[in-house]
Design a protein around this nucleic acid. Structure first.
Length: 154
DNA sequence: GCCAACGTTGGC
DNA sequence: GCCAACGTTGGC
């Protein structure tokens, strides 16, 4: 089982939206970056845990924890001509884009990006690397544990 | 709004 | 296959 960090813009879809879903579950669709897609399609398994990260907002940071509850399957929006995520090169036989389903495990007090940066133990965390733009990144178990400790010191 | 960093596109 | 131009991301 692996750990991940998944970015979302709270204006578009934040942890509050997820918390309001009847099943507290959502499809993580709209990824249009090959590296992020590969992580989802090839490496994400049911039971994997991820930090839900708020980006492009006044207070970027970790806002909660989610769990993968459904393995990668084709992202429906790639076939939808009306969607801005439509991809004319994608076919049903050879879908290009995928999503997974994630379920809210728990919301957390916001752990701001600035605080993540303040801990030398997290210096190698992918999200903190210069120029990082990947919306989905793996998190090493050691980093995961460290952040969990920050979220809940007891 | 600025700008650095990166991915994608397209001409050659 | 190279690489310049362009678009996007995302923190500040």
């Amino acid at each position: 089982m692996r750990y991940w960090l998944m970015k979302s813009e709270p204006d578009v879809y934040g942890i509050e939206h997820l918390a309001k879903e009847p099943t507290k579950t959502t499809a993580w669709w709209g990824v249009r970056n090959y590296q992020a897609r590969n992580f989802m399609r090839d490496d994400m398994a049911v039971g994997d845990l991820a930090f839900f990260y708020h980006s492009s907002c006044p207070e970027p940071g970790i806002a909660g924890i989610v769990k993968v509850v459904k393995r990668a399957y084709p992202d429906a929006t790639q076939f939808d001509r009306a969607s801005k995520y439509h991809d004319e090169k994608a076919t049903l036989e050879a879908p290009r884009w995928f999503n997974v389903d994630v379920k809210l495990v728990k919301r957390t007090p916001l752990l701001p990006l600035a605080e993540l940066r303040a801990h030398p133990e997290l210096a190698d965390l992918r999200i903190l690397q210069r120029g990082n733009r990947l919306s989905i990144t793996p998190v090493e178990p050691g980093h995961w544990q460290f952040v969990m400790q920050l979220l809940d010191p007891h």
